[in-house]
Nucleic acid binder design. Structure first.
Lengths: 311, 311
DNA sequence: CTGTTAGCGCCTTCAA
DNA sequence: TTGAAGGCGCTAACAG
């Protein structure tokens, strides 16, 4: 319809190709009339570039990850890339997913809060597909990882709560096998230790809202409930606050209860010093810090300042 | 290496193709040794099936949508499809995104909380790509839509709050142009009207957490604050509760304050009848109902029961 | 059951 | 600046 060859059509749709303005216009006019659009998928066959990135995750329950997903997606989209979603089965074995990913010719893989074994890394690496592990760390070299300093974060949280005068600071832990949990726990215990304290109770919330609710009930319902709580991520902190506030009628931070009555009292009625009360205080460091960093990153590059203090 | 033709290799990787067991094994052995994997993208060229679905959305800030994204993604993945993410620019003009989508040869489009004009629908339809609009409605025919009965939901919410005895029931509205906002508002006002009431105040939260916080401050800070609040979605309800509880020291539901003092009091100190108090009550219907339905849907089909009552 | 052949829609030489 | 030819890796149709 435009009276030109296939090659010229192809060139007309390539911004950098050399086509005369008149020809390009003719091609575009004809394309509009015919409803023609270049086929991205076929193009990728010859250019060997799918302009596609795989994202692998177990769950988007934690809003932190859908936040990252959106940011990453917009970032890639701005340069003509798109994210292809892969969800790992809860079982934990995602070799089949990796196979799927390799076959799909993606040009990169984002592991969102998923650890890979060295063998799995090698699998993908053999195809020249770069992998970035987000918010998990592995103990072998040769793979890109992005995350926060979880040990420091946990350390600060522990010291912070202890420095406020709390003496029974419990841990609401994440997935036991995850590097984040292990590092935050280690840092936290170290932080307590640095203040000559130990952790009286650890309950596991698996980084899940519902599990964290249960864990909080166990913690607070125990004969010697904690007087402060460190949650290993935002989502569990929200769960804990919800339970503390609305099942145990506590305020976070700062309220005081008489455990014998299990009733909320104003400080004047039952001051902390007058009864074996429980003051609730809850700290969650990692997610908040990472979120701030991401937001800053949206703007422009900035020098590496020292990590911010807790809270 | 396996001593067979290209076709036989191809067939060996097609579960339903007829290949002798021995040949298939030889092919698989050689593939493993060579590190060969079929190229999904090239396959789609000849089969004319990309096994890819586009998801378009403005934002994943509302966890309801990342929830749906995960469910949809797992559903499709189970049958060999994958989701390709497209984020619409905040401006609202996403014709370029639609063009991108068409070129990408997806076999379907999920519009997550995005409305399309009839012209835009036609654009995609001309390529034979089915579109499903999720949680928005359009006023022309020929396009699939999935959502809840927002008018009924709003109606129930309005009546419910009025029947509890509230008399200044404000609305925390969503995106003014969205069908969900308009329908929930219409139903809500109708529900109030059915109880011989009118809405004293409407503030817009744009379905966003931060905007909803601001809107709540305006509502509660006004000279005649509401005694109940209907939020047009979960995310804004969470924002409102956060502000009410922690900036205004109110309990949701059920606390009572003396607006002159703006202090929280226990009912014994300042019973609702003793002063022009504000009893807070907050209802959000839509997201909850939709979420329940989705979860049920995970299990198995069930008969269409009547829509559940509010709360 | 297996091999040969053709072609999916595009891009990239190479010539003109 | 444009056109012709070849090929990306795969599958479908057709023989054998």
């Amino acid at each position: 319809m435009a009276g030109v060859s296939q090659s010229t059509v192809s060139r007309s749709f390539s911004p950098n190709a050399k086509v005369s303005e008149g020809t390009r216009r003719k091609v575009m006019d004809a394309s509009r009339e015919l409803g023609y659009r270049p086929n991205t998928i076929t193009r990728s066959l010859i250019t060997r570039s799918s302009r596609t990135i795989a994202v692998v995750t177990y769950s988007l329950e934690n809003p932190f990850y859908s936040f990252m997903l959106e940011k990453a997606s917009r970032f890639f989209q701005a340069q003509g890339y798109h994210l292809l979603m892969f969800f790992a089965p809860p079982s934990g074995d995602f070799d089949a997913v990796l196979d799927d990913i390799i076959r799909s010719q993606v040009e990169g893989v984002l592991m969102l809060a998923i650890t890979m074994t060295q063998h799995q890394t090698g699998l993908v690496d053999d195809f020249g597909i770069p992998v970035v592990i987000i918010n998990r760390t592995v103990d072998y070299a040769g793979i890109s990882q992005v995350g926060s300093d979880n040990v420091q974060g946990g350390y600060w949280a522990g010291r912070h709560l202890a420095s406020l005068g709390h003496r029974r600071i419990a841990l609401l832990g994440g997935l036991p096998d995850s590097s984040t949990h292990q590092q935050r726990e280690a840092g936290f215990l170290e932080g307590l230790h640095s203040m000559d304290q130990t952790c009286p109770a650890i309950e596991i919330g698996n980084y899940r809202y519902d599990d964290a609710c249960q864990a909080t009930r166990r913690l607070v319902g125990s004969p010697t409930p904690p007087d402060a709580l460190f949650a290993a991520n935002d989502l569990m902190a929200l769960a804990a606050m919800e339970i503390l506030r609305h099942e145990f009628a506590l305020e976070v931070p700062g309220d005081v209860i008489d455990p014998a009555l299990n009733l909320r009292r104003s400080p004047e009625v039952a001051p902390a010093s007058a009864a074996p009360g429980i003051t609730q205080h809850l700290v969650q460091v990692h997610g908040l810090v990472a979120r701030l960093r991401l937001d800053q990153h949206n703007g422009q590059d900035r020098p590496n300042g020292p990590p911010s203090s807790s809270r």
